[in-house]
Simulated scan of single mutants.
Amino acid sequence: MDPALIFSADAEASGTDRRSLALSCRSGKLVRLRPGVYMQADDWQKLPPWERQRARIRAAVEQVPGQRVLIQQSAAVIWGLPVIGDSPEVLLLAIHPTHGRRRGNLRWTERRLLEPVTMRDGVPVTSRAHTVLDMAAYLNFERAVPAMDHVLRPDPDRGLPALRKEQLRELAEHLPDSAKRLRALRVIDFAQVLSESAGESYSRAVLYRHGFPDPELQHEFATTAGRFRTDFYWPGHKLAGEFDGSVKYGRGKAGIAPSWDTLLREKRREDAIRATGVGFVRWSWNDITRPPQHPEALVQRLVRAGLSQSRHR
């Protein structure tokens, strides 16, 4: 259940004035999500970064009067889809004849509805399929792939079924112009159900962008210590790759520190795979978001490991 939001208008109706809320905020008891909306600081501190983003979006939607259908990245957060990087604006559907406009961090944008608006957790949003197609049509390739990979798998935590590529392709034909249709179809065709995390999906898109050969996903190795899978494997180069996701969806956020036992198990697993004669490369969010020329960027790590950028970029 989402933590409760505290609205200054409601507080005034119950006898608490705005000055008291501001004082509680300065003393650290409350956190201000946006003008006139607060949350208990204890609740805020317990939230991981992606849930904090959800709380800020909820605060905006519940405060805005009238039309407030979430679209694109903002709808994706409500659906539980991976959104790469911070999205400071809350994106809302502009209904014809209203044109796009901005107010503070709220942005109304015109979109052709591909499916009817639906409700998710009490919030009006574009459908799950429409949301990922919008991301594919309007975001860059790397940021669109993780959400598309995600919807190809069932989401049991949220009770959501997998979407089929055929269904997404048919819906993409109703995007407003050929350029957007082509962008969306490219992401759909590239999407893979075997990508098991946003970091793996983003890594795969970066590999593709920079001309590296396509890897096998979730390859299983038989070793003397047991059978182990890796995120990526290039059999022609005898090279395995692994994404380490210490942070869920972006760079520079509070990490989830692995335990010593986890680190030890990973070290033994890597050593067992290396003992089969296979090279091993690990990378993190920092590595895939660095400029490709940076010596610690994913691109440079793979080149040093002997993986050639041979495919046409």
Rank of each mutant, 00 (worst) to 15 (best):
P3K: 10
D10I: 14
D17K: 00
S24F: 04
C25S: 10
G36L: 02
R54V: 11
Q63V: 07
Q63I: 06
R68T: 01
A75N: 09
A76E: 03
A76G: 11
V77F: 02
W79Q: 08
V83A: 00
V83Q: 02
P88M: 09
E89L: 06
R102Y: 05
R103K: 11
R107F: 04
R112Y: 09
E115C: 06
E115Q: 14
V125Y: 07
L139H: 09
F141G: 05
R143T: 13
R143W: 12
A147P: 07
G159P: 11
L163Y: 11
A172N: 09
E173K: 01
H174D: 03
A184S: 05
A184H: 01
I188Y: 05
Q192F: 02
L194D: 08
E196Y: 01
E196N: 08
S203Q: 04
A205Y: 00
G211V: 02
F212G: 02
P213H: 05
P215V: 07
Q218P: 04
T224R: 04
R227G: 08
T230F: 07
D231K: 04
H237I: 11
S246Q: 09
R251W: 02
P258Q: 04
S259Y: 10
E266N: 13
R268I: 10
R268Y: 11
R274G: 11
P295R: 01
Q300P: 15
L302T: 03
S308T: 07
S308V: 06
R311W: 05
